[in-house]
Design a protein around this nucleic acid. Sequence first.
DNA 1: ATACGATGTATCGTATGGCGTAGTAGGAGG
DNA 2: CCTCCTACTACGCCATACGATACATCGTAT
Lengths: 98, 98
Amino acid sequence: MARFGEPGVLVLLSLSDGAKHGYAITADVLEQTGVRLGPGTLYGSLTKLVERGLIAALPSDDRRRPYEITAAGRAALAAQLATWSRVVQTGQSRLAQA
Amino acid sequence: MARFGEPGVLVLLSLSDGAKHGYAITADVLEQTGVRLGPGTLYGSLTKLVERGLIAALPSDDRRRPYEITAAGRAALAAQLATWSRVVQTGQSRLAQA
DNA sequence: ATACGATGTATCGTATGGCGTAGTAGGAGG
DNA sequence: CCTCCTACTACGCCATACGATACATCGTAT
């Protein structure tokens, strides 16, 4: 059903902090996770997330185009984080027993 | 460089527990994460992970074809889990402040 | 004996996603 | 005025995800 990949999750993560425009999302994701999103990846993800109602475009004052996360986007992010959290805990416990 | 998607991570997670064959991986991933991997996804991932040296095929005694994780696979899994761990912590802290 | 459900692997097709490249353009500073 | 940072758009290749499909084997109950 709701299919979006890792870049989409990182965008939702960044917007969960507050509305941002594309370039600021890139900088935030890089700072928070060390992952560098290129323009193709970033704007492709933004388009898909808008189509799915997980984020919404805000009126652009200047040449920047800000986006905000929606309630559905927060729910999707929370669900994905819960799954990853289980994976991380299971994985780290399994890797620990060498 | 070494790029593999979420199914690949789940396979590595499953094999970090010990060698398993395909069907057993599906069952383990379902139990541990709630994610159901179809045959296409599973065997496609297995092929790619073998090509990248992250897992290795073991000699098959019966009709089962077991795989084991390699040292490189453990390292790749650990790296991915570390990134996800950061994302989960950042995200949950951001979602918490409503 | 046999039918059936569970186990187990493999392949094909394809829509989508990931991501690099290149191009456009405003603003700031030397 | 030239160049570097910011900021977005457009394009396109290729890998990936994943459903559909097929087929072999085992255990078990009837």
